[in-house]
Every structure is written in C-alpha cells, then in structure tokens.
C-alpha cells in the first residue's frame, strides 16, 4: 500500500475521518466498560454527567482544564516549531516551586502575584533552555533530554519537600508551607471553587494565537517547523527562533504549576501534577497544535478525567479507562487527520 496526496479534498473527505475517529473512540470506551462487567451505556452516561452533569461537576472540569490549557499551549507552541518539548512536567514543577518560594512571605503584597508569575515563567523557560541549547549548540536530541529532566525535577521536588521547603507544621507530611493570602489567586466568583488561573489560561491562549498569527516571530516559528533547511536558507536566525520558542513554551508550562499552587492548592506537594505535562501533549495534538483549539481539547480531556473519576466511584470501572481512552483518541485522531489529506492506494 502507498499514500497518495489528494489535491482538493471535498467536505466528506475533510470531516469523515475525524468523525469516524470519534465514533471509534466511543466504541472502544463501550468495549472497555463491557470488559469490566459494567453496562456500557450506563458507563458512558456516567462519564458525561460526571463531567458536566451538575454545576459542581462543570466547575471541577474547568479547574482540571486550567493546567492542561497551559501545558497544552506549551506543547503546541514547541511542536509547531518542531521543538519536541516532552518536559512540560519538569517546567510545571519549576513554576510551582517559585510560587512557594516567593509566596510564603518572601514578598509582600501587592507585587507578589505578578512578580511570582513572571519569575515562575522565567524558571520554566530556564529549565527548557538547557536541553534546547544542547540541541542547537551540540546537536543533542531534545526528546530524551527533556524527558529525563522530568524525572530529575520530580526528585528535586521530593528533596525540597523533605528538606528546605518542608512545612514545619505539616505533621511530618512532605508538603510545603501554605501560601500567604496575598499570594493566592482570587476566585473568579466569590464562593465558587474556580480561580483566576482559568482566566489567565484563556488569556494566554489568545495571546499565543496572536503571536503565532500576527507577529514575525510566529511566522518564523512556523517556517522553522515546516522546513528548517528552507528557513535557514532564507536567512532566518533559526537557532534564535528555537531559543525564543523554548522560552515561550517553558514559561507557559511553568504557569500550569504556578496556577495550581497559587490558585487551587495553596501549597506544594509531590502529587501536585498527575502527569499534566504529559497529558498536555495529548491536548495539543487533539487540538492540531492550534492555540484556541487547545482550550477546547483541554476542556474535553479534563471532562474525560473528571467524568471517569465520578463514574469509577459509581460503576467500579477502574479510572485508568480515562488514560486508555485518551491514548486511543490520540492515535485514531492522528491517523484520521492524515486520511483527510491522503488516500491509501494499493501497490
């Protein structure tokens, strides 16, 4: 078999494969539920109601989507320039550490929030800068180095929480002291468990979209991603573009950790992120790397997680079904997108 590009794909060609991918994912979900001995329709229904069925559920989904929008944007920005940043998890924790360092009394109000957000972005950017400089200066592949940084960072956090940053009042638990009130992100509406981190995530998505579509840097990032040799031949400062991309990507990922600490948790513990950095890759891919699409796909992915948690408590189907469904959705979707532009021919 062989792939043949389609010159002018029709409407059916452009919508058919993605629709089929969604149907196939739902079928896999039903099959997995049946394997667990549960009623597939009931399980699917419980996932949906668990995600958006009540005010509480919907707010929970928005809260869960917040870090995913940030990590999804971080990945989308980097992948667009073909910079394979798989290290959003490490950059996230860098942001979280800064939120605690500056938010537990080191800085007074009213500067603490903006300053700590900026420093957090800087820290995340620095974490990504190391693998990127290794890539542009020495030709070290960034996939593995960014991945390995995740493991190193988790150990650094573990050390900090058991040593210098450990809360003396924490009853021996490895967690940091609580942030002062001025360092906390306020709620969007008083009395509702949704913080301004979500608002900041939406603003970031729009800003990234503007950068990508309205600035020279955005144009250069796309050019480098599409054909690095052509970009170099055209006289673009390719290495500088990659470094700037890294700064933006690392900064966005750091905001995920920063807003989780400053907005939701109020302190840092080693279970702050259940893999938000890795899930950001799925969010970005499902959004086809479009910054505004990231918001939609982060909401979808968060809904799957929150809904599966609720369903699992009720139906007894293991929560790992959520990760399986996302992996299946990702693989079906990348294949479907390919099939909107190519047809499979024999020979």
């Amino acid at each position: 078999m062989r792939l043949e590009p389609i010159a002018h794909p029709g409407l059916a060609r452009r919508l058919g494969p993605p629709a089929a991918a969604i149907v196939a994912t739902v079928l896999v979900a039903a099959l997995l539920a049946a394997l667990a001995g549960a009623n597939p329709f009931a399980v699917l229904g419980q996932i949906v109601t668990g995600a958006v069925g009540s005010r509480f559920a919907a707010l929970e989904t928005l809260n869960r989507a917040t870090p995913l929008i940030f990590t999804g944007l971080a990945v989308a920005v980097a992948f667009r320039a073909r910079l394979w940043n798989i290290g959003a998890e490490a950059q996230l924790y860098a942001g979280a550490i800064i939120a605690v360092l500056l938010g537990t009394g080191a800085l007074g109000s009213p500067f603490v929030l903006p300053v700590s957000a900026l420093v957090a972005m800087l820290a995340g950017a620095c974490i990504l800068l190391v693998p990127v400089l290794l890539k542009v200066r020495l030709g070290v592949d960034e996939v593995v180095t960014t991945l390995l940084f995740n493991f190193i960072m988790v150990l650094i956090v573990s050390y900090l929480l058991e040593g210098p940053m450990k809360d003396p009042m924490g009853m021996g638990w490895p967690k940091s002291a609580a942030l002062i009130k001025e360092a906390r992100l306020p709620r969007i509406v008083e009395g509702v468990r949704l913080h301004w981190g979500f608002g900041l995530a939406l603003i970031s998505a729009v800003l990234v979209w503007l950068i990508q579509t309205r600035t020279t840097l955005g144009f250069e990032m796309r050019a480098v991603g599409q054909n690095i040799r052509a970009a170099r031949f055209a006289g673009m400062p390719v290495n500088a573009v990659l470094v700037k991309t890294a700064l933006l990507s690392g900064g966005l990922a750091a905001l995920a950790g920063w807003s989780e600490v400053a907005g939701l948790k109020g302190h840092l513990s080693s279970d702050l992120s259940p893999g938000f950095g890795y899930t950001g890759i799925i969010v970005a891919m499902l959004a086809l790397l479009h910054p505004l699409g990231v918001v939609v796909s982060a909401l979808f992915v968060a809904g799957i997680f929150v809904g599966s948690d609720a369903m699992s408590r009720a139906a007894g189907v293991p929560t790992y079904i959520a990760d399986m469904l996302l992996a299946v959705a990702l693989l079906f979707m990348v294949l479907a997108i390919l099939l909107t532009r190519f047809r499979v021919v024999r020979g």
Binding site: I86, I281, P318, Y320, I321, D323, A327, L331, V334, L338
Partner: peptide
Amino acid sequence: VPFGLSQHVVGLGITLLATSTSYY
C-alpha cells in the same frame, strides 16, 4: 511505517496506551 505518521507522537501515544492498558 506504511502510514508514515510522526514517530514522536505515535510513540508517546503507544507508551500511554500500553501503560494504561496494563494498569486497567
């Protein structure tokens, strides 16, 4: 191979799928 999709994306997808399948 036959579909020629991004080896990075597919590989990470397979890692997530195989891991979550095992846990499930």
